[in-house]
């Protein structure tokens, strides 16, 4: 984890977080398979996030879930989970740990500063805790996960340098 910028009311850190992208129909068979493997029932509401001690699971669209490992696990364990999930043809589980970069954002001014880069409505009434969102930040596709006390913002790794510069710029200007 590296610190991107720390300023009045905001602190941004960059980190690589292991992540698996799950695709499936979301029916009971799918839910059972996921539950069996992760001991976590996939959320059924769009953009809802649920967590246990090991994983955070966010439903990002009607047939897509992001499995996020906030605590890093060994690669062979991750590969085992991946292989386990992929045993069934009903699930496509893809390791995307290397394809995205996360920014952890904390502080009372976080939303004001992010609103320099996105039209997204961060108000409590619109963007509740334990929900996620997919939107544009500085014209880049991003996912935002509203967790307790912090935001996790992810983008494709190819955009990471650009987005990091834009976040710093947003804090400074």
């Amino acid at each position: 984890m590296t610190e991107v910028i720390r300023s009045d009311g905001i602190e941004i850190k960059k980190k690589v977080i292991q992540q698996i992208l799950l695709r499936g129909s979301g029916d009971s068979k799918f839910n059972n398979l996921i539950n069996k493997s992760l001991k976590l029932l996939p959320p059924s509401d769009n953009l809802r996030i649920i967590s246990n001690d090991n994983y955070t699971l966010a439903k990002m669209s009607f047939d897509q879930w992001n499995l996020i490992f906030e605590k890093e696990i060994e690669n062979n364990k991750l590969n085992k989970i991946l292989a386990d999930l992929n045993k069934s043809p009903l699930i496509l589980a893809t390791n995307i740990s290397d394809s995205q970069v996360f920014f952890e954002i904390q502080g009372k001014n976080s939303f004001d500063i992010l609103n320099k880069l996105t039209h997204f409505d961060f108000r409590e009434k619109s963007f509740k805790k334990s929900t996620g969102a997919q939107t544009l930040l500085a014209r880049v596709d991003c996912s935002i996960f509203n967790l307790d006390l912090k935001l996790l913002l992810s983008c494709n790794r190819s955009f990471a340098d650009y987005l990091e510069d834009r976040l710093i710029d947003a804090v400074n200007y």
């Binding site: 695709r23 047939d63 009903l90 699930i91 893809t94 995307i96 740990s97 290397d98 394809s99």
Partner: peptide, 12 residues
């Protein structure tokens, strides 16, 4: 058709 697809452009 029961099929799903994921982008792995940036993973590799």
């Amino acid at each position: 058709l029961k099929v799903f697809m994921n982008s792995i452009t940036e993973q590799y």
